[in-house]
Amino acid sequence: MAMTTMITNNTNRYGWAAIALHWLIALIFIGQFALGFIMVRIESQRTAFELIQLHKSFGFLLLGLVILRIAWRLGNAAPALPRSVGALERRTAPLAHFALYAFQLALPLSGWALVSVSMLEIPSLPFNLFVMPNLPLAMSDASENIWAAAHWYLAYAGIALVVLHALAALRHHFWLRDSVLVRMITPSSDQEME
């Protein structure tokens, strides 16, 4: 198989670019949820501050990767679903993927809005490389509370969506025994799908 074929999607499988972006985003998204959960419960203010800066750094990275993933997806058609996938699931799968993309964008954007309106005015330094400018939003305690709540609700709704997505993939692999999960693990030659 040619190298370009392995990088881009084909009719049966995702290419390496989509696979790498999928799993990297999944790892960061889940890691961000865990880090966010820990950083607000830790007693040491210094450690909490460092974890918050790390959380912001990975949030900006996540935002960039999700934008790249969406651009890649728009330029590379997704492989066709296996014949075993029913009509209802064929209609709902694109909606579920759209929801995942929406949450993966909304969550870091709400975090960026939160630090932008914070009265503490602590600069965001992604991985200590540069100062990320704030969004042009008015600072106030009320705005901070609104964005903090939005970020919190989006985080829990997003992680619930990720869990449902993972359960659906496992259902396809272990119960339906089709190629839905396998095609997001490794690219392959154009094998016939089940």
Rank of each mutant, 00 (worst) to 15 (best):
L81E: 14
T47N: 12
T92Y: 01
Q45H: 11
L120F: 06
F127G: 12
G86W: 06
L88K: 09
G86D: 15
V85M: 13
Y101M: 13
L120Q: 13
K56W: 03
W112C: 14
A77M: 06
I70V: 14
I122F: 08
G64N: 01
L105D: 13
P108E: 06
P123M: 01
I52L: 07
I122H: 12
L27Q: 06
A80V: 05
Q104T: 08
S44Q: 04
S116D: 14
F98T: 09
F60D: 10
E89L: 03
G75L: 03
L107D: 09
M39I: 00
E121R: 13
S57N: 07
P94A: 10
F127H: 08
L129H: 11
V131N: 15
P108R: 04
P79K: 01
Q53M: 14
A78V: 00
S118Q: 03
S118K: 02
F58E: 08
R41P: 08
L54V: 00
G64I: 00
I30E: 01
E50V: 01
L68Q: 01
A93K: 00
L27R: 06
S84A: 14
E89Q: 09
F33N: 03
A87F: 10
F98Y: 13
L109I: 10
T47M: 07
L95I: 06
I28S: 14
F33A: 08
L81V: 02
A93W: 02
L114H: 09
A99R: 12
L62P: 08
F103S: 13
N128T: 03
P94G: 13
E43V: 07
I67L: 14
A34W: 08
F58R: 01
A106W: 03
K56S: 06
L74Y: 15
G86Q: 08
L129C: 11
L63Q: 08
W72I: 01
A77N: 08
I30V: 06
A78G: 12
V85H: 11
E89W: 00
A99M: 13
A78T: 04
F58V: 08
L81N: 14
K56L: 02
W72S: 06
H55G: 04
A106E: 06
F127V: 01
S118P: 12
V115H: 02
A102V: 01
F49W: 11
I30F: 07
G59I: 00
A106S: 13
L100T: 05
A34E: 01
L68P: 07
L62I: 02
S116K: 10
A113H: 05
R90Y: 03
A48P: 04
V85C: 13
I38A: 13
G111N: 09
F29N: 07
F29Y: 15
N76A: 02
E43G: 15
L35M: 06
G31A: 05
L109K: 04
A71S: 14
A96F: 02
P82W: 00
V115K: 00
V85K: 11
I70A: 10
I122L: 11
A87L: 13
A113P: 14
F60A: 07
N128E: 10
I42C: 10
R83H: 11
L107H: 05
L74C: 15
A78L: 04
R83C: 05
A113G: 14
P79E: 02
L107Q: 07
Y101L: 09
I28F: 05
F130G: 15
F60P: 09
G64T: 01
A78W: 00
L61I: 05
L125Y: 15
E121D: 15
L61P: 11
R41M: 03
L88H: 10
